[in-house]
């Protein structure tokens, strides 16, 4: 699949079939995450793959932003240094977000729907997954075979968000 087709075709999927996702597919997604860029190649991300029904059920209950039960979750965590400064904190967010996008595009290519969620109770997810104190769940990616085919949401025009040479100086396509 062409990368640009994946970028434009991917949708946030919030309704899934009951079909489980195979180990091979999950590992492919983890590989996609592993090859994401990270600041200073620090690779401070950690990935907890959740497929067991009781664990999935528990996470969903503490995630108001997740509406239906997915076949799996990948909880993207940051293995944080103690007393990380704001620059480091920003890096954790950026690195985990880039890894999430790799996961979502790789999933789309093999027919798996995804949605990235931030509306979950971090304290609860940390407890459920038994995360060490320095490991923070940054993003939760839901995964499953799509049971919906949503229309693309509107996008701002390029000339509203992109500028040439200076902010405000119009980008002309």
């Amino acid at each position: 699949m062409d990368v640009f087709d994946a970028i434009k075709g991917r949708r946030s999927i919030r309704q899934f079939t009951d079909e489980p996702i195979g180990k091979e597919e999950l590992e492919r997604l983890l590989e996609a995450a592993r090859w994401a860029p990270s600041g200073g190649n620090q690779q401070n991300w950690r990935f907890v793959v959740v497929t067991s029904p009781p664990q999935r059920e528990l996470i969903r209950k503490f995630a108001p932003g997740i509406f239906a039960m997915p076949a799996a979750f990948i909880v993207i965590c940051a293995d944080k240094e103690p007393d990380a400064n704001p620059w480091k904190e920003a890096l954790y967010v950026a690195d985990c977000s880039i890894a999430a996008q790799n996961i979502m595009l790789a999933a789309y290519e093999i027919g798996i729907g995804t949605c990235v969620a931030l509306s979950y109770a971090k304290v609860a997810v940390s407890e459920i997954l038994d995360l060490p104190e320095n490991v923070e769940p940054m993003l939760v990616v839901t995964l499953g075979y799509p049971a919906e085919d949503p229309e693309p949401p509107p996008r701002l025009e390029l000339n509203e968000i992109a500028f040439m040479d200076e902010y405000g100086k119009e980008w002309v396509s």
Partner: peptide, 26 residues
């Protein structure tokens, strides 16, 4: 009951920082 309580407590906790419209949604 436990499921709804988990949802409500999590929502209350998250809404401290989430956009205010999310409150109506929750």
């Amino acid at each position: 009951l436990y499921e709804i309580l988990a949802f409500l407590f999590s929502s209350a906790h998250l809404l401290v920082n989430e956009p205010h419209l999310y409150g109506t949604f929750r």
